[in-house]
């Protein structure tokens, strides 16, 4: 999947990746790639500015800590981030349901 298709969804993907766990930057990138079965193809460098943006919005907090013998910045969801993730998930379900209704021959096509 190309970066253009991901534009606008990266923040939600990052929030979902951090749901219930604390990860450093590269671990987030690995988790994103594993979660998508290796299909996500975005420049990994774009993840860091996105994490800063989420941190500025108060959805993510970060700390420097020692992981694997190296100092790393680790990220976790805040309660605001948890709420933003729930809202993103609801919006996504609604969106896919509507699009599927039109493109996928769902309930709306039969009306």
């Amino acid at each position: 999947m190309k970066p253009d298709a991901l534009r606008g969804h990266l923040d939600a993907l990052l929030l979902a990746t951090l749901d219930g766990r604390q990860l450093h930057g590269y671990a987030i990138i690995e988790a994103l790639q594993q979660g998508s079965g290796g299909v996500l193809d975005l420049p990994t460098g774009t993840v860091y500015p996105a994490l800063r943006r989420l941190e500025r919005a108060g959805h993510v907090s970060s700390d420097w800590s020692t992981v694997g013998g190296r100092q790393r910045r680790t990220y976790r969801l805040t309660s605001s981030g948890q709420r933003a993730l729930s809202a993103e998930r609801s919006a996504w379900r609604e969106f896919t349901s509507v699009i599927d209704g039109v493109l996928g021959g769902g309930k709306w096509k039969q009306v």
Binding site: G25, Y26, I29, Y48, R52, R73
Partner: peptide
């Protein structure tokens, strides 16, 4: 410096992987 340190760490992690 924070961004550049993270960049270097991420690249080193990727190389190791």
């Amino acid at each position: 410096d924070d961004l550049l340190t993270e960049t270097r760490d991420s690249l080193v992690d990727a190389v190791e992987a």
